[in-house]
Nucleic acid binder design. Structure first.
Lengths: 208, 208
DNA sequence: GTGACGATGTATCGAGCCGATACATCGGAG
DNA sequence: CTCCGATGTATCGGCTCGATACATCGTCAC
């Protein structure tokens, strides 16, 4: 998952670790908490070993600090890495639908074909609906067995689930109706979004 | 964290692993996903080693299945375990305020003194407010740098944060105003909650 | 100037936790 | 009788986190 996030960010521009982490923290929003260095650096090592990323000597003409010893390491994605990322974009396993996985996939939706976007949104909706049903079950059947605080926690959770399902419904409707990243008109910024990128109409490489 | 959850549940009744997991899954709600056995059993082992829980031979008079070989193991909390749990209830570190930690602590709020409850609720609120400010920052300053999907993810995250802060505000107000687990009147179940348990007015054992 | 400090930056370690897997028993459906 | 799904205990590899260490850079006070 982190693998996909890193590859996706490096596709936009070469970066060093510190930068990568900051970008990760802001872009991946709430679903995915800030990544730790204890995760980031080993992953970078792994990706380099797999040949998906490579080190680009820090361009000292542009960013000259760090003169000696252990200079900053700038990573850039390789051709194999781009290919692998393209695969990851269309694949969806169970981990695609948990909070972290969904956050990463969603972040790269503008580079994902419409069919895959729909598949992922619907998978996520299904996941949340299951969680919601579980909570309703508890609230309906075992409410008397639970103390007031536990009950309140369940209610709050149920609320969040219902809200997310509605959000997903809206996104799905939008996807189906053609206008791609066009979300409902929010106060003031109706026309601000790009009308539509070329958008290959999802020829989608058949893959199990 | 899982340690606290297990101790808390075993305080209610002795249980075996499978039961524990089910109880954990329903009670801890959404904040804490279902625990895996690969986590549960090693933790039980650790707790046993620490002397906080012990094995109680499965009472075959009541639950007779599993006749031979590797019978089911029923765990029960020890005196030391109860003491340790009481400590955990009043302590609050940084991990108390992330999703999982807060969920566990909140679940045991009916066994927590009011002062600690307030401390934890306020800590959680602070944590979420920070997350919210971060998102507002991004949305305000870097909105043009982000594509429509990423933007929508941030908005949804911000929405969830604002909602949770409001929820916490309400809980905090309730705590301060005395009526302990009495939440706002919800459609239909106004009088359904216990008026108030004995509730020691938080003499709170002074502890760093 | 210089010394302290905070931001930037790379990296490792121990421990917690997960998903997959293996194995075994029990109750019931076909 | 046999298969199957629920119950039940347990381990393993691998991902991830928080803590920690170390080094450089810019800047502000003194």
């Amino acid at each position: 998952m982190l693998e996909m996030a890193i590859l996706g960010l490096l596709q936009e521009a070469p970066m060093h670790g510190y930068e990568l982490r900051k970008e990760l923290a802001t872009k991946l929003g709430t679903l995915r908490a800030a990544i730790s260095y204890g995760t980031l650096y080993p992953t970078l090592k792994r990706l380099k070993l797999a040949g998906w990323i490579g080190e680009a000597e820090a361009n000292n003409d542009i960013i000259p600090p760090m003169t000696s010893k252990r200079g900053r390491v700038v990573y850039k994605i390789t051709a194999e890495g781009k290919e692998h990322f393209a695969d990851l974009l269309t694949q969806a396993g169970p981990e695609t639908y948990d909070d972290a996985g969904f956050g990463v996939h969603f972040t790269f939706f503008s580079r994902t074909d419409r069919a895959t976007r729909l598949r992922i949104l619907e998978g996520r909706r299904r996941r949340i609906e299951e969680r919601r049903e579980g909570l309703r079950e508890v609230l309906a059947r075992a409410a008397d067995r639970l103390d007031a605080y536990t009950l309140e926690l369940q209610r709050h959770g149920l609320d969040a689930c219902e809200r997310e399902v509605r959000w997903l419904e809206e996104l799905i409707t939008n996807e189906r109706s053609g206008r791609t990243p066009a979300f409902r008109n929010r106060a003031g910024l109706a026309g601000a979004l790009n009308p539509d990128p070329p958008e290959t109409p999802s020829p989608q490489p058949d893959r199990p």
